[in-house]
Amino acid sequence: MGELAVPERILKWQLEVPQGQIVEESQTAGPRSPILMKSVERVSKLPVVEETVKIAMNVYGKLKGANCIFNWSLKKVEYTAAKAAESTAPLVLRLQRQIEIVDGLLCIGLDYVEWNIPAVKLPPSQMYENAKQCVSKCAQRCGNCSNAVMDCTASKLQKLRRICGGSEPTKKSEPEHIPEPEASSSAGPSQPSAS
């Protein structure tokens, strides 16, 4: 949050001359910029990130202007963040080569993501519409599949009823007469008597 509120200090800290060389500390009022990370610049230009930053800056501005205590507190946080950035500049200069290696790896990873997921370059509204269409198609397919399963199950139940001797519920036929067992002992095998 502190970085969003102090863009002037950050911009002074990361000035570039036209040839791409970093401006020395003696040429500006503040410390010289140790490194400009290309990966951070590329990520910040993605439409989703740009939109998120705009919303965050808007909310931050409203929060800061809502109350004098919030304003005072957030100014102290901004000041502390700026001082921390100034105090870490020498350390960042010492680690410049390692940071450049990490930046290169991040750029390779970003290339991979942009190549395999081109939707990251779309504006948020287009991403939303695409996701909504995808979910609608999936829900429609699931509905069609469940209807097919229900139809299949109903037809199998009807076949099973026919095999077991029951009638189909959709036909208006009289139930089949199933003969009841006779009560006399002459019909069927004789039972041994208990003596």
Score class of each variant (00 low, 15 high):
Pro189Tyr: 00
Thr80Cys: 03
Gln140Arg: 04
Leu15Glu: 14
Leu91Asp: 12
Gln19Leu: 10
Arg42His: 11
Val6Leu: 10
Gln27Asp: 15
Ser190Asn: 09
Thr28Ile: 13
Ser125Val: 11
Lys172Trp: 02
Lys121Ser: 14
Ile178Ser: 05
Gly109His: 12
Leu160Tyr: 00
Asn147Cys: 11
Gly30His: 03
Asn71Ser: 14
Cys142Thr: 06
Val23Phe: 04
Trp13Cys: 06
Ser44Met: 03
Ala56Lys: 03
Gln27Gly: 00
Glu168Pro: 02
Ile117Thr: 04
Ser26Cys: 03
Arg141His: 10
Ala85Trp: 00
Met37Tyr: 04
Val149Glu: 13
Glu86Asn: 06
Lys38Ser: 13
Val113Ala: 09
Gln126Gly: 01
Asn116Met: 07
Pro179Ala: 13
Ser136Ala: 15
Lys159Ala: 15
Lys137Gly: 08
Leu63Asp: 01
Gly166Trp: 02
Glu78Trp: 00
Arg161Phe: 06
Ile101Tyr: 13
Leu74Val: 05
Pro47Gly: 06
Ala194Ile: 04
Ala81Asp: 00
Val59Asn: 08
Pro31Ala: 04
Leu36Asp: 08
Ser184Tyr: 04
Thr52Phe: 07
Ser136Val: 07
Cys145Ser: 15
Gly109Arg: 15
Pro47Asn: 03
Leu4Tyr: 15
Gly104Pro: 01
Pro18Trp: 01
Gly143Thr: 04
Gln191Ile: 13
Ser184Ile: 04
Gln19Tyr: 06
Gly104Leu: 01
Ser146Asn: 11
Lys171Leu: 15
Pro189Ser: 02
Ala131Met: 01
Trp115Arg: 11
Ile178Cys: 06
Ile101Gln: 15
Arg32Val: 01
Val17Met: 07
Val149Phe: 14
Val53Cys: 03
Glu129Ser: 15
Asp111Trp: 00
Tyr128His: 10
Ile55Leu: 14
Glu50Met: 15
Glu16Met: 12
Ser193Met: 12
Glu100Phe: 11
Thr88Phe: 08
Asn58Pro: 00
Ile108Leu: 10
Ile35Trp: 04
Met150Thr: 10
Trp115Lys: 12
Lys172Asp: 07
Ser186Lys: 11
Met127Leu: 08
Gly109Pro: 01
Lys171Gln: 14
Tyr79Phe: 07
Asn147Asp: 15
Cys107Pro: 02
Ser136Asn: 11
Ser173Val: 12
Glu25Ala: 12
Ala82Val: 06
Ser173Ile: 07
Asn67Arg: 00
Glu50Lys: 13
Ile108Phe: 05
Pro7Leu: 03
Ala81Val: 07
Arg162Glu: 15
Leu11Arg: 13
Ile55Tyr: 06
Asp111Phe: 02
Ser146Tyr: 09
Ser87His: 06
Val43Cys: 08
Gly165Trp: 13
Glu180Arg: 08
Ala187Val: 12
Asn130Tyr: 04
Glu24Met: 07
Gln126Trp: 02
Arg42Pro: 00
Leu122Trp: 15
Ser190Thr: 11
Met127Gly: 02
Pro123Lys: 07
Ser125His: 12
